[in-house]
Write a protein that binds this DNA or RNA. Structure first.
Length: 494
RNA sequence: GUUCCCUUCGUCUAGAGGCCUAGGACAUCGCCCUUUCACGGCGAAGACACGGGUUCGACUCCCGUAGGGAACGCCA
């Protein structure tokens, strides 16, 4: 029944949340929403060396930032358990795993293996030399449990391995994104399910937990495709229910190799700091391997929840194109109200040391003006910098305009108009009038009129429309700037 | 080495045998708007990896080849 759908995202806490992980999380989340099911967050921290509490918290924070909230799993605020199928951190489920390991051991479907690393390496070399698949068949696969336990009692170290069937067996399953996938049992060796330390290994815990947590659909990265057979074997050996599987394509870098750090930013955290909105990131990654039924390119999470379906998932790998991400971000930026946008850019302005003690009307107006120029929230820094008096400077590329013969006159006239102006600020009309007056008095037009004024206002030859920019500025500030530009212009004349 | 997966414009993709003269989006280029830049509007250029089948007909189905990716761990 559709309302019993249960999916999970199961990251291992060994670093930041990668955009690929975020996409897997997103698709699982959407799949649950679409079917009115549950979305579970399980933490796969069985690697005691690499897993850290810190990573888990960062990843949880990133997922929360993205707005991908889960129904069950590690609680995002207390980091305890939320839901009835916990604990949700595999490191806390060792007792549970032990029962299932024992079952396999007792039924002879798993065994203790005492091979040393050297012995295993040697065996692999032999297989390689013979041109055979690198699938290990342990020397201990037929040792009785009693005998093995005796060896254990003597203090010998052993891992537990799953016993691969002797005769080749074919496994096929219907992959949600790839259709029928077939694999043979001889494509895998006697794989380890418990380390010598007693901590079980991924393929085992993953399979067992999916069954125990009643997961119905497993949507995960393509890199797990080959693991699926192992997990099916475990589940069958334990007579547990099999979930359905769906293997998502890999996300590639611009050079078409798997997206990695050398390609630049790969973590959600990095994109957040660059000034990408969570919904924009979600929007963009959703399109990496999935397409909207209506062909829409810009949409909200809500829209995604309503329109997602796994049959529009694409099996081929996709290149992560930052240029398009920025465009998507720009589109989302523009949908925000002035108040919302200001809240988003505030941290970026703070970081750049810009501060504006202005009314919310002023902020909204300024933002309305700057929106079309923004792709990333961090672009606000360059946009707003001209409005911060403490940051005013005549830019290098502005000097040419100041060397024109007519420029000092233009600036002088502009200054006089400002000084004789009554109010504290200039309206758009005031500025238009001013421009016309300068045009007449200084007898200049075109860029000779326009450019020096611009430089006298923002210190740069390019930028937003002055008629909207000027009303955002204090007259006193305009005067000060014009004076600086005039001074510079005069010095350049000689 | 072995196995598995993938292959439509530069990039993301639409396409479930005739609707395809292969559609859209980003990027690129041109024009318009604009006394700057951007936004916006209009337009251009740009792809079915290759070879065999199957079929009246193939981007769509099958088989090979090539290319790319992944897996073969006491990592997940």
């Amino acid at each position: 029944m559709s309302n019993s759908v249960r999916v999970r995202f199961a990251p291992s806490p060994t670093g930041f949340l990668h955009v690929g992980g975020a996409r897997t999380a997103l698709y699982n989340y959407l799949f649950a929403k679409k079917h009115g099911g549950s979305y579970i967050l399980r933490v796969e921290d069985t690697d005691e060396e690499r897993s850290t509490e810190e990573s888990m918290k960062m990843q949880i924070q990133d997922m929360t930032w993205l707005g991908l909230h889960w129904d069950e799993g590690v609680d995002p605020s207390t980091f305890g358990d939320k839901g009835d199928n916990g604990p949700y951190r595999q490191s806390q489920r060792r007792d549970t795993y032990k029962q299932y390991v024992d079952r396999l051991l007792e039924s002879g479907k798993a065994f203790y293996c005492f091979m040393t690393e050297e012995q295993i390496d040697q065996k692999r070399e032999q297989l390689k030399a013979a041109g055979l698949p690198l699938q290990l068949k342990s020397d201990y696969r037929d040792m009785s449990l009693e005998e093995a336990k005796a060896k254990l009692a003597e203090g010998e170290a052993a891992v537990v391995r799953f016993r691969i069937p002797d005769q080749n067996k074919e496994y096929t399953f219907n992959d949600l994104v790839r259709g029928e996938v077939t694999a043979n049992s001889d494509a895998v060796g006697d794989f380890a399910i418990v380390r010598a330390s007693g901590m079980p290994v991924y393929n085992f815990v993953c399979a067992v937990d999916d069954a125990l947590m009643k997961i119905t659909h497993v949507l995960r990265g393509e890199d797990h495709l080959n693991n699926t057979v192992k997990q099916i074997m475990i589940l069958e050996a334990l007579e547990m229910n099999l979930p359905e599987f769906g293997h998502l394509s890999t996300i590639l870098g611009p050079d078409k190799s798997k997206l990695s750090k050398r390609h630049g930013a790969t973590s959600c955290d990095q994109y957040r700091h660059m000034g990408v909105l969570p919904e924009a990131l979600l929007n963009f990654i959703a399109l990496l391997g999935w397409s909207h039924p209506e062909g829409e390119e810009v949409f909200s999470l809500k829209n995604l929840e309503e329109n997602f379906s796994s049959d529009r998932l694409n099996a081929s790998p996709a290149v992560f194109d930052e240029t398009k991400l920025k465009w998507v971000n720009a589109m989302h930026l523009r949908k925000l109200s002035g108040e919302q946008l200001w809240a988003e850019i505030q941290p970026h302005l703070d970081q750049a040391g810009l501060s504006f003690d202005k009314s919310s009307e002023w902020k909204a107006k300024a933002l309305e003006l700057f929106k079309p120029y923004m792709e990333l929230l961090s672009d606000s820094v360059n946009l707003f910098a001209p409005l911060d008096d403490s940051k005013f400077a005549i830019a290098e590329e502005a000097t040419e305009a100041l060397t024109w013969e007519s420029s000092p006159v233009v600036l002088q006239t502009w200054l006089e108009i400002l000084r004789s102006h009554g109010g504290e600020t200039l309206s758009e009309e005031d500025f238009s009038e001013a421009q016309n007056k300068i045009k007449k008095d200084a007898t200049v037009k075109g860029k000779f009129l326009f450019m020096p004024i611009r430089v006298g206002i923002i210190g740069k030859p390019h930028g937003a429309e002055l008629k909207i920019l000027v009303p955002l500025m204090e007259k006193s500030s305009l005067i000060e700037r014009a004076e600086k530009a005039l001074e510079k212009a005069k010095s350049l004349q000689s």
